[in-house]
Design a protein around this nucleic acid. Structure first.
Length: 1031
DNA sequence: TACTAGTCAATAGT
DNA sequence: ACTATTGACTAGTA
């Protein structure tokens, strides 16, 4: 609080202290008394190095609090050196309860908490918990004794605040200490508050540990249950922190704490005991929960310790870094942030494309981006935008749905131009397309925005054109790649469509090779290669065509390829002209196509076309235009629509079979185009597209699927599900929809991946064009649809994928899987090639390579995909490629030695976490100070807080909880997890699910809150504000 | 300029 | 071999 100087000074001191070893930093808390005590103590400490640290910490904390952070208020950081008695003092501060125990702290704490907390019941539980663990604690406490501090609110009654004690012990201690935390956790569990804490914890992630401890500390305020509130409140509270302030803060904090779960929360904040990490876990002993708790506790402990260590490295260093982290994992949920979405796509495209694609495309410089942009644009719309990129794009896609597809298209478009990069993108898109198709049907989604025009179809056409133009430049291939993801579709197509398509595909391949992009590589079969190249063309064509499903992919592909090989473009153009359907078929879309299968024939043609190159050469411009005309079909690109569709269909679609989707898509597209504009894509375009579409439609119609899908989609469409709902389908329906039940979708995807033993990495690359880590994050911590922006694209893609017939999915994925490995390398190469200028070309090549390895199978599928479905395989490949492309460039550039990734030391992490608990948004000054103390760069510290903020919060909660605590919604779902969490604070934390858990907790909190509020309430308001953002 | 959102990619953990 | 975590980028916004 005080001046920075103080902090700094303190820091310096702290450092010294650290060296010394133990230091306690106690941050005041709610209880004035305690505060006073603590202060005195702390001061004393300060005198010593320890104090300084404490001071710093406090100051930091306080500042943070002031910032508005949460609970921090009461946080007491106690850094113990081993020897320091200061700690004891600290205890004194807390005295009543804590004091107790000096050592026993843990138990006492827990007890205290319980006691303090009005909630007898909870307490009881806690006690139980405690008993088991607490006991341990006690033992551990021993070490703790000194360490801990706590604060309990002396006054307990009145305030109950929480105090956070940060006890930094040396390793030994910590370990022991940890136990206590656990106990605390347990306590928390009991108390609703815990939940709150948990939530916090989660957010903090590793920090959680500390939190737990804190929780343990006691607090009573049950009151504010809602985590958020608490946090916010805390934040306010924290302000108080300066010594004097601190005391105040304590009170305040406590209040906040109370609010939340009171005790728990506060506790968390209050005491941060850094214990040895390890122990915690042990202590927890309990099953999962325990683990979580442990983690949390560990984390917490660590936090403190880290600080100490950090500052003083000496003692603390010990804790395992990870331990804490692990704990967090649970918190992961909190973490959730990960999800983010689309960006990648856009990025992807960009990256990939960036080669040119887009550039060409113009709009987006990066083609991919374009796509993304599109996606972004609308939010949902963004997607549309993408599409538009193509021309249409704009309009586009209006919606999300489009987005995915659109994106592809976009990519395409731009891609065409330059786009190789896009290719990668495309692939994804392609896949999207498929889905979209699914979605599209649903037009629902699309309809709206996309509207633009036409349906997606029209638009798509434009896109194509654009794309074509674009594509040419860049090797859209990338796009193609993208498509690959869809590969599935191809397969499907294959199945569906049958031979013909495949043939086509093959042929196309041949062509492709000729064209070359990659060819080289794959030649032979290169199915992939061929695919790539061809695909491109095809895609373009496809795009137009398939609007329904395929389109997307195809489009993408075409773009890429086109871009890459002009030839292809020609083909594409041709293809396009030929008919969208066929084209589509050629494209990955196949799946979609499948329906089209009819298209198969077309597909063939497609391929031919591609070969024909007519398109290609013409280059973009001419060709494109021409294409456009024909493309109209392409226009269908609808891809955009697809997205929409995707949303709808969900799984159900899948069942249907690829074809269905496609058909549906087509229909949808058509419909959309006509009807809505829904599609994103839309609109557009036009006539051509329409015409094509009609054809397609007819084809599609052939398949029953469409209907089915449509139905599905429609039914689902819904927006969804909001909440939970889930099911994918519904949500899905919406591709655009607004709402896709991300949670359900994530679950479904996870289930599907497991079912088929599809590695995340493969799915991520092929279908989503995202990294494995990103996918993992999204699946684990999906953000609520409402909170997603560009990230929706990624979910849409997933949605679409689900919608696709299983065959397609599988084939695509598998293909991808096989290919991927290979591809990569290749991709790299190819990427370079960038024949057409862009990486795209390279991409194509890559694909080829890819194909080569897998080719065999791939080819088949690829072909299929290529043709109709091809998309899938092709798409996959493409996608892969695309992605790679992105990379490739990098690679070239890469040369640079990468910086090794920074890994925080335990102390650093713990300290940061501990601070984060208190203050989510430390001022720059604070950050700088922290950085100094920890020996980190300010930017690193800034990143930490940024990431912590984003990852700590429960994504879901926010929405739900914000206003009220209710949030129950999600909770229910979450409940399960939550319950656990409740049981153990730690657990809660651990459970990444946390969000849920948190919610639950929150709910509990609410209940508790009733009584509480107290000061907290006021504070809450304040704090909440600050935090509010956070939340 | 500061933030956020979305990711990537390295690394940790199973 | 996979998945999960996480520090750091980048793009888009306000």
């Amino acid at each position: 609080m005080e001046s920075i100087n103080e902090i700094i000074d303190s820091q310096t001191f702290s450092q010294e202290l650290v060296d010394e070893a133990n230091e306690f930093i106690t941050v005041g808390h709610q209880n004035q008394q305690q505060e006073a005590d603590s202060e005195s103590e702390s001061h004393s400490l300060h005198g010593v190095s320890g104090e300084a640290l404490a001071m710093t910490m406090q100051s930091i904390i306080s500042s943070a609090d002031r910032a508005g952070e949460e609970e921090p208020s009461s946080v007491v950081m106690v850094i113990d050196e081993i020897g320091h008695r200061s700690v004891q003092t600290a205890y004194q501060i807390m005295p009543q309860q804590l004091q107790i125990q000096g050592r026993n702290l843990p138990l006492p704490l827990s007890l205290l908490h319980h006691q303090h907390q009005d909630q007898g019941q909870h307490q009881q539980r806690q006690e139980r918990m405690i008993d088991s663990s607490p006991v341990d604690f006690v033992g551990s406490d021993i070490s703790l004794d000194g360490l801990t501090v706590n604060t309990v609110l002396s006054q307990g009654l009145s305030v109950k605040q929480e105090h956070k004690l940060l006890i930094v012990r040396r390793d030994h201690d910590f370990s022991q200490v940890r136990n206590p935390p656990q106990a605390s956790k347990r306590h928390n569990m009991d108390v609703d508050v815990s939940s709150v804490d948990v939530g916090l914890m989660d957010e903090l992630s590793s920090d959680g540990l500390a939190c737990e401890e804190e929780e343990v500390t006691l607090n009573q305020h049950h009151q504010h249950q809602q985590l958020l509130e608490q946090q916010h409140q805390y934040g306010h509270l924290t302000h108080h922190q300066t010594h004097g302030q601190v005391h105040h803060s304590l009170h305040h904090r406590s209040a906040p704490m109370g609010l939340g779960h009171n005790g728990s929360v506060h506790r968390e904040v209050l005491s941060v005991i850094v214990q040895s990490h390890e122990d915690d876990k042990d202590v927890d002993g309990d099953a999962e929960e325990d683990d979580d708790d442990d983690r949390d506790s560990g984390g917490r402990d660590q936090l403190l310790s880290p600080v100490l260590e950090h500052s003083s490295y000496q003692t603390l260093t010990s804790v395992n870094d990870r331990l804490s982290p692990p704990g967090f994992s649970p918190t992961s949920y909190a973490t959730l942030t990960p999800i983010q979405p689309l960006p990648p796509i856009s990025t992807m495209s960009e990256k990939f494309a960036y080669s040119g694609h887009i550039s060409g495309g113009g709009s987006g410089g990066v083609g991919g981006n374009g796509a993304e942009g599109t996606t972004n644009s609308s939010g949902d719309a963004g997607e549309t935008a993408t599409v538009s990129s193509g021309n249409i794009s704009g309009s586009g896609c209006s919606n999300n749905d489009c987005s995915s597809f659109s994106s592809l298209p976009m990519a395409m478009g731009s891609g065409h131009l330059g786009l190789s990069g896009l290719s990668g993108v495309q692939s994804p898109y392609s896949s999207y397309d498929k889905l979209p198709s699914m979605i599209s049907p649903p037009p629902h989604n699309y309809s709206g925005s996309p509207s633009h025009g036409l349906t997606g179809m029209v638009v798509s056409c434009d896109l194509h054109t654009h794309s074509s133009s674009v594509s040419v430049p860049s090797p859209v291939t990338g796009g193609c790649v993208t498509l690959s993801p869809h590969s599935n579709s191809p397969q499907l197509q294959i199945g569906v469509r049958a031979n013909g398509q495949k043939r086509d595909v093959l042929t196309t391949h041949g062509h492709n090779h000729g064209h070359g992009h990659d060819h080289g590589q794959s030649h032979g079969h290169g199915h992939n290669h061929g695919l790539q190249l061809i695909p491109v063309t095809l895609q373009k064509q496809v795009i137009c065509l398939s609007p329904s499903g395929v389109l997307g992919d195809s489009v993408v592909v075409s773009d890429y390829e086109s871009s890459y090989s002009g030839h292809h473009h020609d083909h594409e153009l041709i293809m396009a002209t030929s008919s969208s359907t066929s084209s589509t078929a050629g494209l990955q879309h196949s799946p979609t196509l499948s329906p089209h299968s009819a298209s198969a024939g077309s597909v063939v043609s497609m391929s031919l076309h591609s070969p024909t190159s007519v398109v290609a050469m013409p280059n973009i411009n001419g060709s494109i235009q021409s294409l456009s005309a024909e493309m109209p079909v392409v226009a269908s690109l609808t891809p955009t629509p697809p997205p929409v569709t995707c949303a709808e269909s969900d799984e159900g679609a899948a069942g249907m079979g690829m074809s269905d989707d496609p058909s549906q898509r087509h229909q949808h597209f058509l419909q959309k185009s006509q009807d809505i504009s829904g599609d994103q894509c839309s609109p557009h375009s036009n006539p051509h597209s329409q015409a094509n579409t009609s054809h397609q439609q007819t084809q599609s119609h052939q398949n029953g699927y469409q209907n089915v899908q449509q139905q599905l989609s429609k039914s689902h469409s819904p927006k969804s599900n909001p909440g939970t709902s889930g099911g994918g389908s519904r949500t899905s329906s919406a591709s655009d929809m607004e709402e896709i039940n991300t949670k359900e979708l994530a679950q479904r995807i996870s289930a599907e991946l497991k079912r088929y033993s599809i590695p995340q990495a493969i799915f991520a690359q092929r279908v989503l064009c995202r990294s494995q880590g990103t996918l993992s994050d999204l699946l684990r911590n999906p953000k609520p649809w409402s909170k997603l922006k560009s990230g929706r694209e990624t979910f849409r893609r997933m949605f679409k994928w689900l919608q696709e017939p299983e065959f397609q999915r599988m084939s695509a994925l598998r293909m991808a899987a096989a290919q991927i490995p290979q591809r990569t390398p290749i991709s790299v190469q190819t990427g370079v090639s960038g024949t057409s200028g862009l990486p795209a070309a390279a991409a194509s090549t890559i694909t080829a390579t890819d194909s080569s390895p897998t080719m065999p199978t791939m080819t088949g599928s690829a072909l299929l995909s290529g043709s109709s479905t091809a998309p899938s395989s092709g798409g996959a490949v493409a996608s892969t490629v695309n992605c790679r492309r992105k990379e490739e460039p990098q690679i070239e550039q890469m040369p640079q030695p990468k910086k090794p990734r920074l890994v925080f030391t335990d102390l650093q992490r713990r300290t940061l976490q501990a601070i984060f608990k208190e203050t989510k948004r430390p001022s720059k000054e604070m950050q700088v100070t922290i950085a100094r103390q920890l020996g980190l760069e300010p930017t690193t510290v800034g990143n930490f807080f940024m990431n912590a903020r984003r990852r700590s919060m429960d994504k879901w909660r926010d929405d739900d909880t914000k206003n009220a605590m209710h949030s129950m919604q999600s909770r229910q779902q979450q409940q399960a997890s939550n319950n656990l969490s409740h049981a153990n604070y730690a657990n809660i934390h651990t459970t990444a699910m946390s969000p849920i858990g948190a919610f639950d907790d929150e709910a509990d909190m609410e209940l508790e809150l009733e009584s509480h509020d107290f000061d907290l309430v006021d504070e809450h308001g304040d704090n909440s504000d600050g935090q509010g953002d956070m939340l």
